[in-house]
Design a protein around this nucleic acid. Structure first.
Lengths: 236, 236
DNA sequence: GCAAAAATGTACTGACTTGTTCATTTCGGG
DNA sequence: CCCGAAATGAACAAGTCAGTACATTTTTGC
C-alpha cells in the first residue's frame, strides 16, 4: 500500500496537523503585527489552543516559527492568485486585469504585505532560505511573461519588454499602497484611502502600466475599450 | 546682550550638544538596521563615545531615543532636498526633475527609507506625535502644488490634478525601489538594481508621472525635448 | 575660588523572554 | 491490552535587556 503513510498520517493522533495549522495562523498574525523581534512567543502561545511547548516541539525555534509563518503567508496569497484566470483574454486586457487584480489583492492581504516589509527589514535573510517562496514568485513572472509574449506576437506590446521590470512597476504601486498607508495617512490625511480615491488610483496604475507595455496605437484602442463598450469614433 | 544664551551655550560644557549628536547618529543607524524592538540600547551606547547612562539622561527612554532618531532622519533628508531648485524651470521640466531627484535621493538615503518602513510597521504611532515631521512633508507638497498650479496656468498640465496623489505616485516608485530591494533581489536576482537598469527604471518613472500630469500635446513636446535637444522633426 | 547645577561613570536590579527539563498522556500496532 | 513512540502539560533555568541608584566630576554664575 503506497498510500498507507498518506492515509494514516491524517487520522494519526488527535490531529497534530490541526495544532500546527493553529499555531501557524496565530504566528502569522502576530509576526505580521509586531515583527520578528517584536513578537513574543508566549503571546503567540497564549493565542493558540495549545502551549508554548508545542511551538518548540514543531518549529524548534522562534526563527523556525517565523520562517514557517512567512512561507504560510506566501502560500495564502498564492491560493488567492490562482483564482485569477487570464487565459482567454487578449494580452492588453489580460495585463489590465492582472494589474487591477494585484492592486486589490494586496489591499485585501495586509498581513502578507507586512510580512514582506518585515522580511525586507531583515534583508530577506529568511526568504533566501526558502525554495518554496522563490518558486512561487517565479510562477507569477511566468504569467506575465506569457502575456508579454502574446502581446508582442500580435503587435500590441512594445518590443524589448522586461517582464520582471513590469512586475516591479505593478508591485511598487500595489505594495506601497498598503505598506506606507500609516505614514501617508498620518501626514496627508486619509483622503487617498477612501473608496473613490482608491478606485482612481487603481485606474491610474492600470493606465500607467499599459502605457509602458503597449504600443501607442494599441494603447489608444484599449483606452476606448475600457472607457465604455463604444468604439472611439462613436462617442464624438 | 541678546545673543548671550546663543553664544555661551555653544561653549557651555564639554560639548553636550556633540554628545547628543553622537548618540543620535548612532541611534539612527542602529534603529534603521534593526528596528525599534530589534535595536539594543547597550549596542547603541557601545558605538557612541559616551555611555548608556547618557542616552537615558538626554532621551529618557528607548522610545524617546527612537523618536528623536526618526526626526533626525527626516531632517537629514530635508536638508538634501533643500538643494533642489526648481524655481526657474517650466512646469513640465520641473516635474521631471523633481521625480528624477526623488528617485536618486531615496536611493542615496536607505537609512531614511528603513526608518519609514519601521515606522509603518508600527502604524506610524511615533510619527503622529511629531509636528516637526508633519510640517516637513507639507513643505514637499507645497513644492508640487506650485508646479501643478503653474502647469495648469500655462496649459501644459491637466485640470483636476491632485498634488498629493502625484506625490503618492512619485513616492511609491522611489520608495519601493529601495525598501523592497532585498526581497526582490532574493527572488529575481540583482539585474534590476545595476546601474543601467536603474537608469532605465528612473526614466520610466519620470515618463509615467509626466504622462499622468501633462496634457497629450505637452507630453509629446517634452518627450522630444528630453530625448535630445533636437526638435522632433529633425531626427527622422 | 565656591556653591549649585549640569553632566557623566560604574555597577546593579528587576522584569521579561527564550528555550528546556521532566513527567504524563495519548495513540497506534501487534 | 500492552508496549513504544508520538504528543503534550507545568514548572523552571539561564540569559538578556531596559532602566536606575549612587557616586563623582565638570562647568557656570557669582
Amino acid at each position: 500500500m503506497a498510500l498507507k503513510t498518506e492515509t494514516e498520517r491524517r487520522s494519526w493522533r488527535q490531529d497534530p496537523e490541526a495544532v500546527k495549522r493553529d499555531i501557524l495562523a496565530v504566528a502569522l498574525s502576530e509576526f505580521a503585527e509586531n515583527g520578528l523581534s517584536g513578537a513574543r512567543v508566549e503571546t503567540i502561545a497564549s493565542r493558540t489552543r495549545t502551549s508554548k511547548r508545542m511551538i518548540y516541539y514543531y518549529f524548534t525555534d522562534k526563527l523556525g516559527l517565523y520562517t514557517a509563518a512567512l512561507e504560510a503567508a506566501y502560500m495564502k496569497v498564492r491560493e488567492g492568485e490562482a483564482a485569477l484566470d487570464l487565459g482567454g483574454l487578449p494580452p492588453a486586457r489580460a495585463l489590465a486585469r492582472l494589474v487591477a487584480f494585484t492592486f486589490d489583492h494586496h489591499r485585501r492581504n495586509p498581513d502578507f504585505i507586512r510580512m514582506v516589509m518585515i522580511e525586507n527589514i531583515h534583508n530577506a535573510e529568511n526568504l533566501v532560505a526558502s525554495q518554496v517562496i522563490r518558486d512561487m514568485n517565479v510562477a507569477a513572472i511566468d504569467k506575465l511573461e506569457d502575456i508579454c509574449k502574446r502581446g508582442q506576437e500580435d503587435g500590441t506590446f512594445r518590443q524589448g519588454l522586461d517582464p520582471v521590470a513590469l512586475h516591479w512597476q505593478i508591485s511598487a504601486a500595489s505594495f506601497f499602497n498598503v505598506s506606507n498607508r500609516p505614514t501617508f495617512n498620518a501626514i496627508f490625511g486619509p483622503n487617498l484611502f477612501t473608496g473613490t480615491a482608491q478606485a482612481d488610483l487603481r485606474r491610474q496604475i492600470v493606465e500607467s502600466v499599459l502605457a509602458i507595455a503597449l504600443t501607442p496605437p494599441a494603447l489608444t484602442e484599449i483606452r476606448a475599450e475600457i472607457a465604455g463598450t463604444a468604439a472611439p469614433g462613436l462617442s464624438g
